[in-house]
Design a protein around this nucleic acid. Structure first.
Lengths: 224, 224
DNA sequence: CTCGAATGTGAACGCCCTGTGAACCTGTGG
DNA sequence: CCACAGGTTCACAGGGCGTTCACATTCGAG
């Protein structure tokens, strides 16, 4: 996952290390305003809020996150003597971990909360312009018109569309979408791109753009 | 709350005391079969499963609870050196607590998980289009015509129909409907799907749709 | 403009996924 | 002991679709 986790306040070295080792991207936020301003366009992946000195600020951020999008997973780090703070505020967080924490416990909680799609009430959907991909149902549609895609076409389109504008070489695509080492079938990508374009329709074929001598990218067409 | 919490295995004095002081009713269960047999008519309020000696039994109970997809909240009590057990089994529990536990931490987790209104009571009747499933009587009918389904056919149909449109892999279906680890009998799912389709009748056979290379789903597009 | 490399395009091959019928196994009731 | 129902596994056939190839077209450097 590329989306960052919001961390309040600036994490201790132990916390930063645990996040880094877990492969998570994170961004420190200093206050509620910051948690809004620093939020990336795709939204936070989750939030880790330390309940310690600045208790009021911490809860303010939680409320702010809940108000904006109830589905952002929130994990609290809380000192034992502050456990009572959680009482009557159950709706402001999803999980908590006693601080100081055991790295493996926090790791397990992060994995459980963040990698499990069950907690996401909203259907997992990728949207780019008029293109909509529903991860749960494996359905795709563009401008309301449903697309009948095969498995590989769907996977390729999803991969491209989830990083709009970014160029991928054929080799990278084979690795990430097909999942095996490059064996010499680079043209396979071309053919799938072609079928995708034809299924996207005349007016949307340029959603997948060729970058000559490099590869392909997904981009909303701004000129015709 | 009157519904009891299932506790596996028989709780230690500390655990029993924590539950009693929290005002929870609880029932000790000894094994998977017990967790089904002892379940009150209104269903369990939640479950506390200790991951310790009888690991396999513990997970079997979790799978069994998850099988009747009423969202029974499951909290694990796990020794630190067994944390790895949780890996890849995220769908089998909702929260965990390191054991030995601090009473106030467990108390907070119980309150957080059990008092939140996220866990609704299991539905008595599932209706999707012309399909009707009566949970109590195990009766199914489509367009008024009653269906004569076997137990597994009924469970499979109910699971699929309760998340219309969502695609499930054979592996997930074996886990959630059959309730065991995936050992290679994926074709079992195919055969049951085929029988379901034939019993649904010619005109409704497409209610269960094949998503090639992925799995099966119930119904068609949700978003149209 | 010319040429070579990169990409688009149509078609054909063949693997692997799924549907399907039937056998096998297990438990239950008579 | 047999008959039967229901669940699981197996073998085989058909077809979808991913891959590859040959050829056409386009692009860009010089």
């Amino acid at each position: 996952m590329v989306r960052p986790i919001a961390v309040f306040p600036s994490p201790t070295p132990e916390l930063a290390q645990t996040l880094d080792l877990g492969g998570y991207k994170w961004t420190a936020v200093e206050n509620e305003l910051d948690s809004v301003r620093s939020e990336p366009e795709e939204g936070w992946f989750g939030a880790i809020i330390v309940i310690d000195d600045e208790i009021k600020d911490a809860w303010a951020i939680c409320r702010s996150l809940r108000r904006r999008d109830a589905n952002i997973p929130v994990i609290l780090l809380v000192r034992g003597h502050l456990l009572d703070e959680l009482n009557m505020r159950d709706e402001l967080y999803d999980d908590f971990c006693l601080d100081p924490f055991h790295p493996r416990e926090l790791e397990a909680r992060l994995r459980h909360l963040l990698t499990l799609p069950t907690h996401e009430v909203r259907p997992e959907i990728v949207e780019q312009g008029t293109l909509t991909l529903n991860i749960e149902t494996y359905e795709a549609s563009i401008a309301g018109r449903p697309l009948d895609l095969t498995y590989m076409e769907y996977e390729l389109l999803r991969f491209l569309a989830s990083s709009p504008g970014k160029v991928f070489t054929r080799e990278v695509l084979l690795n990430r979408v097909w999942g095996y080492e490059y064996y010499g079938g680079a043209r396979t990508v071309d053919v799938h791109v072609r079928r995708l374009r034809s299924k996207l329709g005349e007016e949307n074929a340029n959603l997948i753009q060729t970058v000559r001598s490099v590869g392909y990218k997904f981009g909303t067409a701004r000129w015709n």
